[in-house]
Measured scan of single mutants.
Amino acid sequence: NRHQFAPGTFSGVLQCLVCDKTLLGKESLQCSNCNANVHKGCKDAAPACT
């Protein structure tokens, strides 16, 4: 399954699913299917969408 990433819209601090570093809103993407949160630069390394 493929992620459907869109710019993240969340408040607070989240961790990137891929690199475990802190996500800030402006550099984040969120999958509309599984709600995975990743950095824009990490999206290609994200595991399959669940």
Score class of each variant (00 low, 15 high):
41 G>P: 11
2 R>I: 15
42 C>N: 01
19 C>F: 00
35 N>M: 06
35 N>I: 02
43 K>R: 10
26 K>E: 14
14 L>S: 11
13 V>C: 15
19 C>I: 00
28 S>K: 02
26 K>M: 10
32 S>N: 12
21 K>L: 11
31 C>G: 01
18 V>M: 06
6 A>W: 02
30 Q>I: 04
34 C>N: 00
42 C>Q: 00
48 A>F: 15
1 N>V: 05
21 K>E: 10
13 V>E: 15
15 Q>T: 09
4 Q>S: 06
32 S>I: 06
29 L>E: 14
10 F>T: 13
35 N>F: 08
16 C>L: 00
45 A>M: 09
16 C>Y: 00
38 V>D: 00
12 G>A: 05
43 K>Q: 09
4 Q>P: 06
27 E>H: 00
37 N>M: 14
37 N>Y: 09
35 N>W: 04
18 V>Y: 04
37 N>F: 08
8 G>T: 06
14 L>W: 03
48 A>R: 09
18 V>K: 05
38 V>N: 02
41 G>W: 08
1 N>M: 14
37 N>C: 09
50 T>V: 07
34 C>G: 01
34 C>I: 02
22 T>M: 08
49 C>M: 03
33 N>T: 09
23 L>H: 08
10 F>S: 14
43 K>A: 10
35 N>K: 15
46 A>F: 08
45 A>N: 12
42 C>W: 00
41 G>M: 13
26 K>R: 08
4 Q>T: 13
47 P>M: 10
49 C>S: 05
7 P>A: 09
18 V>I: 09
20 D>Y: 05
2 R>L: 08
35 N>G: 10
10 F>K: 15
17 L>G: 09
45 A>F: 13
42 C>F: 00
20 D>T: 12
38 V>Q: 01
46 A>Y: 04
2 R>P: 05
16 C>F: 00
14 L>Y: 11
44 D>G: 12
11 S>K: 12
17 L>Q: 10
29 L>I: 14
14 L>V: 14
16 C>W: 00
48 A>I: 13
38 V>K: 02
47 P>N: 11
29 L>Y: 07
49 C>W: 01
13 V>T: 15
34 C>D: 00
23 L>D: 10
39 H>D: 05
25 G>Q: 12
23 L>R: 01
38 V>I: 11
36 A>Y: 12
21 K>Q: 15
46 A>P: 04
32 S>H: 08
36 A>K: 15
38 V>P: 01
2 R>K: 15
24 L>K: 07
20 D>Q: 07
31 C>W: 00
28 S>C: 08
29 L>F: 10
4 Q>Y: 12
6 A>E: 15
44 D>S: 14
44 D>W: 05
30 Q>Y: 05
11 S>L: 05
8 G>L: 04
47 P>E: 10
8 G>P: 14
25 G>V: 14
2 R>D: 05
16 C>T: 02
49 C>D: 09
7 P>K: 04
50 T>N: 05
10 F>V: 12
47 P>G: 12
15 Q>F: 05
45 A>I: 15
9 T>L: 05
38 V>T: 06
29 L>D: 11
42 C>Y: 01
27 E>F: 03
47 P>A: 09
22 T>V: 11
8 G>R: 03
28 S>N: 08
49 C>Y: 03
9 T>C: 09
29 L>K: 03
5 F>Q: 05
15 Q>V: 10
37 N>K: 06
24 L>N: 15
21 K>T: 12
41 G>N: 10
37 N>R: 08
7 P>T: 10
41 G>R: 03
22 T>W: 04
50 T>C: 06
41 G>E: 15
21 K>D: 12
35 N>T: 11
39 H>Y: 00
14 L>P: 04
45 A>S: 09
5 F>S: 03
26 K>F: 07
10 F>E: 15
9 T>F: 03
36 A>F: 06
40 K>G: 14
10 F>I: 09
30 Q>T: 10
50 T>I: 11
17 L>I: 09
33 N>I: 10
38 V>F: 14
11 S>H: 13
26 K>S: 13
42 C>S: 02
24 L>E: 14
32 S>D: 08
21 K>I: 09
45 A>K: 09
44 D>R: 09
1 N>I: 13
36 A>T: 11
27 E>S: 03
3 H>T: 04
3 H>M: 03
48 A>V: 07
17 L>E: 04
32 S>R: 10
42 C>R: 02
40 K>L: 13
31 C>I: 00
46 A>D: 06
24 L>R: 06
34 C>L: 00
29 L>C: 00
34 C>A: 00
5 F>W: 02
49 C>L: 03
42 C>M: 03
22 T>H: 06
9 T>D: 11
32 S>F: 06
18 V>W: 03
39 H>E: 03
25 G>A: 13
15 Q>M: 09
13 V>D: 15
21 K>R: 05
2 R>N: 15
1 N>Q: 00
49 C>R: 04
9 T>A: 13
40 K>N: 13
31 C>H: 01
16 C>D: 03
27 E>W: 02
20 D>C: 07
36 A>L: 08
24 L>T: 15
31 C>V: 01
30 Q>R: 07
39 H>N: 01
22 T>I: 04
29 L>T: 09
5 F>G: 03
28 S>H: 12
11 S>W: 03
48 A>Y: 09
31 C>R: 01
7 P>N: 04
26 K>L: 12
50 T>S: 11
5 F>N: 04
36 A>C: 11
9 T>S: 08
7 P>Q: 08
8 G>V: 05
3 H>D: 10
30 Q>E: 11
6 A>I: 15
7 P>S: 07
23 L>I: 06
27 E>Y: 02
40 K>H: 11
27 E>T: 02
41 G>K: 05
49 C>Q: 01
30 Q>V: 07
42 C>V: 02
13 V>Q: 15
42 C>A: 02
44 D>V: 09
38 V>H: 01
1 N>A: 05
10 F>G: 15
19 C>D: 01
45 A>V: 12
16 C>P: 02
28 S>L: 10
18 V>D: 04
36 A>R: 14
10 F>D: 15
30 Q>C: 10
24 L>D: 15
14 L>N: 03
20 D>M: 05
1 N>G: 08
39 H>M: 01
33 N>C: 05
20 D>F: 02
40 K>F: 14
26 K>C: 09
33 N>G: 12
1 N>L: 03
5 F>D: 03
5 F>R: 02
31 C>N: 02
10 F>P: 09
46 A>C: 07
11 S>V: 07
34 C>H: 01
47 P>T: 10
45 A>E: 15
1 N>T: 13
46 A>N: 07
39 H>R: 01
27 E>Q: 03
31 C>M: 00
44 D>M: 08
46 A>T: 12
16 C>Q: 01
42 C>I: 01
44 D>Y: 07
37 N>T: 14
18 V>E: 05
1 N>H: 03
47 P>W: 09
40 K>A: 15
30 Q>F: 06
24 L>V: 13
33 N>A: 12
17 L>T: 11
28 S>P: 03
8 G>H: 09
42 C>T: 02
16 C>R: 00
25 G>F: 03
15 Q>P: 06
23 L>E: 15
40 K>D: 15
48 A>C: 07
25 G>W: 03
37 N>P: 13
